[in-house]
Each structure stands twice: as C-alpha cells, then as structure tokens.
Nucleic acid binder design. Sequence first.
DNA 1: GTGTGGAATGTTATGTCATAACATTTGAGA
DNA 2: TCTCAAATGTTATGACATAACATTCCACAC
Lengths: 140, 140
Amino acid sequence: MTDALEPSPDLTRNQALVFGRLTEAEAPLSAYTILDQLRNDGLRAPLQVYRALDKLVEYGLVHRLESLNAFVACNHPAGENSGASHGTVAFAICEECGGVTEFAEQDVVKRLQGWARTEGFHAHSTVIELRGLCENCTTA
Amino acid sequence: MTDALEPSPDLTRNQALVFGRLTEAEAPLSAYTILDQLRNDGLRAPLQVYRALDKLVEYGLVHRLESLNAFVACNHPAGENSGASHGTVAFAICEECGGVTEFAEQDVVKRLQGWARTEGFHAHSTVIELRGLCENCTTA
DNA sequence: GTGTGGAATGTTATGTCATAACATTTGAGA
DNA sequence: TCTCAAATGTTATGACATAACATTCCACAC
Ligand SMILES: [Zn+2]
Ligand SMILES: [Zn+2]
Ligand SMILES: [Zn+2]
Ligand SMILES: [Zn+2]
C-alpha cells in the first residue's frame, strides 16, 4: 500500500550533510532551515537541499511531515544508516516542544488497507499525523 | 481527540462565495485558485480567501488537505450548510483525476486514540490522507 | 437615533516553501 | 581515453501563507 523498497547506497556529500543535520536535530527542520545551517559547508541554494531530501526520502532515511512542510530523520528500529526501509508509519507532533514521535500501528494500517480494498483505491503512500501536546508538555 | 464542536452561523458574503465555489468543484482547490475564480465577485487579495477558509474549516464545512495545500468542501452525511461538525475523518486522494473521497473508519480512530492514551499524547487534530489511484483511474 | 465595540473586510507588503531551466562537474565502466 | 548518467551549481521564478494597519459593518446599549 505504501513505500516501495529502495536500496540505500552510500550517500553523496550533500545528502550526508543534510542527513547529518536532520539526525542531530531534536525537531523537524524545514528545507530552508537546513540550508541556513549548512551555508558554512558550502550549500548555497534551496535546490541543493531539496535534491538531497528527495533522495533521502526515497531511501527511507528521512520522512516529510506534510502538516509542517518539514522533514525528520527516520527513527525506525532498523532505520540506521544502512539500507533502511519500512511501511506506513504515523507521527505524533507536539506543538509545544516541536518533538516528533514516529510509531507504527499495524491495525491502523490494516484497517486503511481494508477500506482501500473494498473501494478499489490503490494507495501508494499514506500520511498519518497527530497534532497536539506530548506527555511532558501536557503536565508542564 | 479532534475537532471541538463549533456552531455554524450564517455565512458572510466572502465565506459564502468561497464555500459555494468549493461545493461546486469536483476536486480540491488551492486558495489562489479560489481567488482567481472569484475575481469577478469582488475578491482581490489572498487574505480575503484565507480568512474565509479559516472560518469554514472552524465550522467544519471545509477540510484542508495537508498533502496538497488545498481545500475541499465537507461531504459528511450531516454536513449540509447547517451546523455541521464531526470527528476525525480520512481522505483518499486520486492523483490521476484529482477526486477526493472523505471517509470515517472508527476503528482507525480508536486505535490512534489508544496509542495516544498509552503515550500520554493529547491530540487535538489528526491528519489521515491516502494518495494513489481511485478505482476508475486504476482500470482506465 | 446615536454611540460603541467586536467582527469582518479591504489593501499593501512581505515571508515561507518549492521547482523550472540550464550549465558544469564527477566518476564508474566500455 | 571516451562516454554517459548522476550529481551538482546557479539564477530565476512560481506557489502558498501571513503581518500590519486602515476601514466598514452591524448588533446592541443607551
Ligand atoms: Zn521511519
Ligand atoms: Zn512537547
Ligand atoms: Zn467532513
Ligand atoms: Zn481517479
């Protein structure tokens, strides 16, 4: 229903820079924020970042958060810097601290697949994003 | 978990124009597309459209599709032009014909609520969007 | 009927996100 | 060494969204 498997070859220089920056970040980053933080590494134009992001998303190393127009490094269990790839996942996005939790609920995916099957809809990607407050920010 | 109930008062002129245009459309419309189509009705600036959209979304008459940066009129069973409001729904978006199907899968919502409860995450809105091909466009 | 305040509106300018188009460089394999 | 596909560099432009401020509208109190 989602995410064709892709090999994850060695990263190019720009891809490694962008991926490294996202891996260090504690919250999603926009492409322009990434660009600003990589000026000293030689990046100058948005396209350099967007092209790297396109590949990283294709490899399954990075996810795009549609409701934020921003990107996060994958934290999938097997999602190290090797050949990582996985199916549909969901994101919980805290609007106070910006933190993002990636999680997989197989029953949710199954249910959506079930709906798609009965309707004849052929999904190739699925977006699931919860917006709200994480536990820390609720109690605080 | 989502969508506080809101009364849906009489629509203002701009709100009615925008809602009418979305209701007639067969696919999602961007704010700027709506603006272009309402120039002859006196609308001139993006903010006039965005402000109307904000209210219509608040009233539950219109939904924003995050993965498209576009808007659709609600087709909820009780979602006429009266006081309509409902919980979390999902959207199936055809990338061939542009058609959007709004549907509710209570088990999906329950499962996501379950995850949120165990994690202490307090969601106030939920985005579920499937991207792919509808039945017509798959067979065609 | 007049005054008043909140909501809606109108308008200009600006900020943010993303891609088109084209030139150049790089590097693996014939 | 040649060659071609992939990656990169660069400029310009397109698409989506909001800040800031002035004005109008209208229900409601007086
Ligand atoms: Zn992941
Ligand atoms: Zn938080
Ligand atoms: Zn609806
Ligand atoms: Zn279709």
